[in-house]
């Protein structure tokens, strides 16, 4: 028996919005520790890694490890039937071929349930090595989304260049070029407004706008985003989901032909 209850359905809606650009379907691996999802997009350029800790749920029970393959568009349809502040309970029997989502309104006057067929997805599990990154940048998630959106108008790629002075986002295209420089904040009123750079060595890498834009769909989940970079390894873009877990995206850099 698997049962996971989350007080506000909106959190799950935000998670779905953040991954459905990149993935059509995905396996949700459920264990006592929580729910994990790890999948590459079809072109194997990016990887989504989601972890929701069991202690972040209002109620969580997982008697046996369970992998549920789900179509994310179908899941989104179901979650669109819930109100943001509905409590959601995800339920499945051991070895079941369906999963049930139950939504309860705050006053309990409306209870709805939706049963969805599970899919048999043959997804491979990947071991992600621990990397000591040359540069780790923390910045407001909204600012990162804004920069990616702004620069995407001008080119297909964004060069991210990190030094101890700050981080620079650059692009160029048919109409010209654009640069946005962010300095490390020396003082800030709120922690979520800070730009913090931990640099061992300067790094400059180029990434496709299309994927960076997809990653910023996670912006509603977190105030801050963390970018981790080293030469010749994938960029990690991480959003911490408060009290619940994290959503990480990995993106292969563009390389010289």
């Amino acid at each position: 028996m698997f049962e996971a209850r989350l007080i506000n359905s909106v959190t799950f809606k935000k998670v779905l919005d953040a991954i459905k650009d990149l993935l059509n379907e995905a396996s949700f691996d459920c264990s006592e520790a929580g729910i994990q999802l790890q999948a590459m997009d079809n072109s194997h350029v990016s990887l989504v890694s989601l972890a929701l800790r069991s202690d972040g749920f209002d109620k969580y029970r997982c008697d046996r490890n369970l992998t549920m393959g789900m179509n994310l568009a179908s899941m989104s349809k179901i979650f669109r039937c819930s109100s943001n502040d509905d409590t959601v309970t995800i339920k499945a029997q051991d070895d079941a071929d369906t999963v049930t989502f139950m939504f309860e309104s705050k006053k309990q006057e409306k209870i709805s349930d939706y049963e969805m067929k599970l899919m048999n997805l043959d997804q491979e599990h990947l071991g992600i090595p621990d990397t000591d990154f040359s540069c780790v940048i923390r910045m407001p998630a909204g600012e990162f989304a804004r920069i990616v959106r702004d620069l995407s108008q001008f080119g297909e790629s964004i060069v991210i260049s990190c030094t101890k002075e700050g981080v620079k986002f650059s692009t160029s295209g048919d109409i010209g070029s654009a640069n946005v420089k962010l300095a490390q904040t020396s003082s800030f009123e709120k922690e979520e407004e800070a730009v913090i750079i931990e640099m061992q060595e300067p790094v400059t890498l180029t990434f496709a706008c299309q994927y960076l834009n997809s990653f910023t769909k996670a912006t509603p989940l977190a105030n801050q985003v963390q970018l981790s970079m080293s030469d010749n390894v994938p960029l990690v873009v991480e959003y911490q989901i408060p009290d619940l877990g994290h959503l990480r995206y990995y993106l292969a850099p563009k390389i010289e032909e």
């Binding site: 990947l126 071991g127 180029t206 292969a252």
Partner: peptide
């Protein structure tokens, strides 16, 4: 020019 890299090879298949 630059081409898009792939993730294959960065991660080990378990």
């Amino acid at each position: 020019g630059q081409v898009q890299g792939r993730l294959d090879g960065f991660f080990q298949v378990l």
